[in-house]
């Protein structure tokens, strides 16, 4: 992979997953109050905001692994006026603060009830901005494979797919372990349908983008081939996993009404779907970085 980009694969995926989790947490507050009230809070791995905080911390750690001189990272927001990378780091800071504010307000339940929806809206909006700014970092004229509609599309889809899948898994696990019974299966069903739709869009856009890319001859001196070798094999594997994950998600949706009978089996089954999605996203993102070539030399 170009420039040892594994740290960036995990930084971008983790931060986008966190943005997705916070978007769905905010959505839950406004759509289904009963479910929202049953979501665990505080230092609990089943609390979406706590999990998002942890994942963001890991994302930042991964971003540091990419740096040659991590101690100089204090200069990273020096160039907000024109550098999208500087803006990205600033957006990570803002998003991190917003997630922390959600975590604290939900944990301490302040008397000012408006603080929770305000912090949730703040985190969802800053999450959307974060994904948009991460996309902009890669929309570079001199790098044709990244300077495409597919970059923001795939980044937003990663946020939505990982966010929806993680939220469904967390909610299912909350039912299973806490046995609260307040998280409504209807809401999980809705989230699962959303996940199935996002997976379908991801599959279609990936296939279209790949087909269009094969029609163009890459610029620059590198002879990257997108229809042979390891890149093509990984593309086929990813598409296969996407189809399998989509099929299993639909199967899960149609079996969900019987959740009260055997929720442990449901959790295990969805954990498998989640694992497939994570593998597919890692392959997709590593392919994104591997597709790098630039104009010129």
């Amino acid at each position: 992979m170009h420039n040892n980009s594994w740290s960036l694969v995990f930084f971008t995926l983790l931060s986008q997953a966190c943005a997705g989790i916070m978007i769905f947490l905010a959505a839950t507050f406004f759509i289904d109050q009963q479910t929202f009230q049953a979501i665990p809070t505080g230092l609990n791995f089943l609390a979406p905001d706590f999990l998002a905080l942890l994942l963001m911390a890991f994302a930042v750690l991964f971003s540091f692994l990419h740096l040659g001189k991590p101690l100089h990272a204090v200069n990273a927001i020096n160039h907000l006026s024109s550098s999208w990378l500087s803006r990205e780091i600033f957006a990570v800071l803002i998003f991190g603060i917003s997630v922390l504010s959600v975590f604290l307000t939900r944990m301490f339940e302040p008397s000012q009830e408006w603080l929770i929806p305000v912090s949730l809206i703040f985190s969802a909006i800053s999450g959307v901005f974060l994904v948009a700014i991460i996309s902009k970092v890669y929309l570079i004229k001199t790098i044709p494979p990244w300077n495409s509609w597919h970059t923001p599309t795939s980044f937003f889809l990663s946020a939505l797919i990982l966010g929806a899948a993680a939220t469904v898994l967390l909610f299912l696990s909350s039912i299973g372990i806490l046995k609260t019974g307040f998280i409504t299966p209807t809401y999980i069903l809705g989230l699962s349908w959303a996940l199935a739709i996002f997976l379908s869009i991801e599959t279609i856009t990936t296939l279209i983008f790949h087909a269009k890319r094969l029609q163009k001859s890459p610029a620059g001196i590198e002879r990257i081939s997108f229809n042979t070798g390891k890149y093509h094999t990984l593309h086929l594997i990813r598409i296969f996993i996407l189809f399998v994950a989509l099929f299993f998600t639909l199967y899960f949706i149609f079996r969900l009404p019987g959740i009260s009978d055997n929720f442990q089996a449901h959790i295990r089954f969805f954990a498998m779907i989640f694992s497939l999605i994570v593998i597919e996203e890692i392959i997709g993102r590593s392919q994104f970085y591997a597709s790098y070539y630039r104009v010129g030399v």
Binding site: G68, H72, I140, I143, R294
Partner: peptide, 15 residues
């Protein structure tokens, strides 16, 4: 000031 993020190397068409 440089933190070694390599972003300049990505974007420069002259390497």
């Amino acid at each position: 000031l440089c933190m070694g993020c390599k972003y300049c190397a990505w974007v420069c068409p002259y390497g």
